[in-house]
Write a protein that binds this DNA or RNA. Structure first.
Lengths: 236, 236
DNA sequence: CGCACGTTACGGTCAGCGCCGAAGTATGGG
DNA sequence: CCCATACTTCGGCGCTGACCGTAACGTGCG
């Protein structure tokens, strides 16, 4: 199959409303069952199963069987990044700010959510802003950078920087990270390995918690205190 | 329209083989007419016109009229980045290297081409490698960085760094740039504002030249000498 | 061993859309 | 002024594919 045909197939698979809903539901990086995804897309489980099969054989998704459950997840990080970039275009094309709060669920998503493997929403932007203000992070739309003081700062918070050291460039030992434009805040926040490390550490240490079956994130009192006192982050 | 519906519409628009061909033809950043795009996609002009209309009203493309010609181009850089990320997934899903040279045109594309606004193919990777070897650039899959010596180096080559200074972060004045994974070389090269600046400068100074109606790039003798002697780039 | 749940397979219906031929509209040149 | 060119609009054909019934299959639990 030519590259062009593959391109079209991938985009077409992402272009069906039902499949798009399921893909977005998988954007939090977790693995979900066909029934859960069917509910998310508003279709019957049989139909969802067919969609999932097609996306799996195409290589967009991967499945792992656990007992009588089959868990589906995004196959690779680059798939997540692709979905993110499509959402980015969709956000730019959306009406210039409908500003009517669509509901409590939507409000929770705007406040804090995961963007595949890192924080987004107001939380993600606030953390990035705080790190920039403290001089620990530099961020442009092209790229981001964790400074030397930033490495120390995160280390003091118990964050394991070792896995990220491997991503340092050889010469200067700087930690580079990917910027990610938020669709609700329309502001840059931290993605890539650095963003993922912060998100993982926050979840592991009880600073934040995943909410039920959504991408929304709950900030625990402990987390709120740390974000406020250590980061100086404005969390609304 | 909800974000989800917009997402699906955008992906679906990119998912038709004919439209996908046209979008990829526009990936060199230039503006093309409906007839040219029809030829690229292998369809009749009237069919192409319909497709172009839909993509324009959706906001993926923009048109500008010049006499009896209507030039179509990608509406925003984020659209180009979206297409790039889809190609990225397609490249990962493609068979592990069909290695049969598909033809001279394809060979030219592999050697040197534009990727919206910067160089890709063997040329793009070789330039990035050279700058990294000289210690002027640091590059990871998450982000890239032009070092202080890199700023001097490019300045000595007559490259106008002023527009890029605006993209420097305020604190350290470092120039950050976007990494871009090549679909033919499967290696990182320079994108973002820095990659665009290098590409523009090369074209303006006769180091490279665009080939007819394709994305392929021709390296002039002058350019080959500069790339070899100043960059130390292996252009095979 | 059955029952319940989740997933897969099949058949039929229907809407949507890609495509082209033919005709219509603007632009610029002879 | 008329014609050639570039592009668009319209109408109709044909096909793909999304969806849901119903039903079969497999797994794990009681």
């Amino acid at each position: 199959m030519s590259t062009n045909a593959l391109f079209a197939e991938i985009a077409a698979l992402s272009g069906d409303p039902a499949r798009a809903s399921m893909l977005q539901a998988l954007m939090d990086g977790r693995a979900l069952t066909a029934t859960e995804l069917a509910k998310a897309a508003g279709i019957t489980p049989q139909t969802a199963s067919g969609h999932l099969n097609r996306m799996t054989t195409a290589g967009l998704l991967s499945v792992e069987q656990q007992g009588r459950h089959r868990y589906h997840r995004l196959a690779t990080p680059s798939v997540a990044q692709m979905l993110e970039s499509i959402m980015q275009v969709a956000a730019e094309l959306a009406p210039p700010r409908p500003r009517l709060t669509v509901g409590p669920r939507d409000a929770a998503l705007r406040r804090a959510r995961t963007c595949y493997d890192h924080f987004a929403g107001h939380l993600g932007v606030a953390l990035a802003d705080a790190l920039i203000r403290l001089g620990h992070v530099e961020l442009t739309s092209d790229a981001g950078l964790l400074t030397e003081t930033g490495v120390t700062f995160l280390g003091a918070l118990g964050m394991d920087v070792e896995p990220m050291l491997a991503r340092r460039t050889k010469r200067s030992g700087r930690v580079l990270c990917r910027p990610c434009l938020d669709w609700s805040e329309r502001r840059l926040h931290l993605g890539g390995a650095l963003g993922a490390a912060i998100c993982t550490h926050s979840l592991d240490n009880g600073w934040t918690r995943r909410l039920d079956g959504t991408r929304a994130i709950h900030i625990t009192p402990k987390g709120a205190r740390i974000f406020r006192e250590r980061f100086g982050a404005m969390l609304g």
